[in-house]
């Protein structure tokens, strides 16, 4: 989806942090992207490289940490691996699964100077 606007939101977060923390260069960014979050990682990398041109994050390396999907079955309460949003619970066959991990889209840490 809209990876370019997500990249713009990332840049806003980084620039806000730069103003608050007084750094002028971002060397590396760690972020978590869940497999169920519908972010296309290559498109995000590309969008990011476009929006950071001429900013504090111009040379930043993007370290994307992949988060696998996990869910809890609403019927039998077992915790299961989730690869698609239409997975049935392997234990009871129910489709009512709460996603507990795999929707992440967040910046967790930066290396700055």
């Amino acid at each position: 989806m809209h990876e370019l606007s997500l990249a713009e939101s990332m840049l806003q977060i980084i620039e806000d942090a730069a103003a608050e923390q007084g750094f002028t260069r971002v060397k590396k960014i760690w972020m978590e992207v869940g497999r169920l979050s519908c972010v296309e990682k290559d498109a995000l990398r590309f969008g990011f490289s476009v929006v950071v041109d001429g900013t504090v994050a111009q040379q930043a390396v993007l370290e994307i940490i992949d988060i696998a999907g996990r869910g809890r079955c609403e019927r039998c309460s077992s915790e299961i691996a989730v690869t698609t949003l239409y997975d049935a619970c392997p234990n009871c066959g129910s489709y009512a699964i709460d996603i507990i991990r795999g929707n992440e889209m967040r910046i967790t840490e930066m290396e700055v100077e």
Partner: peptide, 12 residues
């Protein structure tokens, strides 16, 4: 000097 900044911020 390089430093690490923890930020924990959802993109949206």
């Amino acid at each position: 000097v390089s430093r690490r900044v923890k930020i924990e911020r959802a993109i949206l």
